[in-house]
Amino acid sequence: MAESLRDIRRKTQAVEKTKQITRAMNMVAASKLKNAQTRMENFRPYASKVMEVLQSLASEMQSSANPLLAIREPKRVKIILMTSDKGLCGGFNTNVIKAAEEFTRSLKREEKEISLVAVGKKGRDHFRRRTTMAGHYIDVLGKFTMDLAVEIGNEVIFSFEEAEYDELYIIYNEFKNVASQKPKIVRLLPLVAEDLNEGESVFGDYIYEPSDEVLFARLIPMYIKVQIFNGLLETSAGEHGARMVAMENASSSCEEMIENLTLQFNKARQAAITAELMDIVGGTEALAKSS
């Protein structure tokens, strides 16, 4: 007998406990995911409205001397990388970190200076010793509001205006559906006309208050913050989606293991009974002979 009955039973119980935990995590992730998805849906009208207004003002771009439109030779690049704070969510962080690695490598080949703003612990831990860190926001994804996007946005906008860097990218997992997230790289600064794909100006003969230049100048930072907030929302929804799937898989693996272990246990038990029977039969035979 390779393993004693008790050993097998102990193992089964351990796997059973693990299954309980993964099941619970799966359910928690599912409810958090629902929440995150609702928030994404609620944010959509706001985001699309901001885009619409900005697009309608895009004609202002040529004449505007806004510092956020300044195109400099991209020598120093800043990247906002969004990951989750916690693990146990399958390849969620690995994928986005890999995409970020590839991206930074190609930038380094062009001899660009890179600084990184990490949102989420996993990204920071990975890049802490590999890249210059410009800042990090840790343990914020559990419960965040637009304020977080405003804070991050103000920080990067300020340093762009001070010409501390020349280009800003944001890397995050785009939430495709519950089971799939895809790393996405978007350039945020400087803002160029193509990014806005200048829509037909629905605001043709509008009254602007204050002037259209002022409105435009105020909308650009807002656009950046909207993009950041969108990234945060997608990251949070993606994290819970990925965790849900990972925990679902873990639970079914546990079930499989339990099945195997139960089979093994039953076999071992049967073997023990057979051995005992043999003993008894041998014993009675011996007794019969001796009497």
């Binding site: 309608s56 003969d205 509008y206 009254i207 602007y208 208050e209 204050p210 409105l215």
Partner: peptide
């Protein structure tokens, strides 16, 4: 509460974009 003072809107207002 507009950027350049509060304003009221009734139906049929001229198109406007205000901070």
């Amino acid at each position: 509460p507009g950027e350049e003072g509060a304003f009221g809107v009734l139906i049929g207002h001229a198109p406007m974009l205000s901070a």
